[in-house]
């Protein structure tokens, strides 16, 4: 696999940000791993769900970049018999970047989280 260009996002990372911002505008402030995989699958009409390793590695990276935050679901609010979910949320910077990513996609550019250096 070719090395990633500095400041750019992988397609899945861009998909996550776009799905997250659409969910947020639809009134869903937080999201979890499987829910996100399902949204991405339906949004892009994929036959299969995103692989576990790929999905959680991408979420970790977006969190490291400060575009997402996450925390464990409050046990009091979790449904009985279901494992607690890790809930993710877009940060203010994440919202800003997600909008830019959508614009980059529309314009056919590689999505970036940092401006290109000359």
């Amino acid at each position: 696999m070719p090395p990633r260009k500095p400041g750019t996002l992988l397609p899945l990372e861009a998909d996550i940000l776009i799905a997250a911002v659409l969910e947020r505008r639809g009134g869903q402030a937080t999201f979890h791993g499987f829910g996100l995989a399902r949204v991405i699958q339906e949004q892009y009409g994929s036959r299969s769900l995103t692989a576990h390793g790929t999905l959680y590695k991408a979420l970790n990276r977006l969190e490291d970049l400060g575009l997402l935050t996450s925390d464990w679901e409050d046990p009091a609010q979790a449904v009985a018999g279901r494992p607690r979910r890790r809930l993710y949320q877009l940060t203010a910077q994440g919202m800003h970047i997600a909008d830019r990513v959508r614009a980059d996609r529309t314009a056919g550019r590689i999505p970036r989280f940092a401006p290109e250096t000359a």
């Binding site: 791993g33 829910g35 464990w72 494992p83 607690r84």
Partner: peptide, 11 residues
Amino acid sequence: LGELRSDLHDH
């Protein structure tokens, strides 16, 4: 492991 358990259950 916790995330995966939750993901598998939801899936």
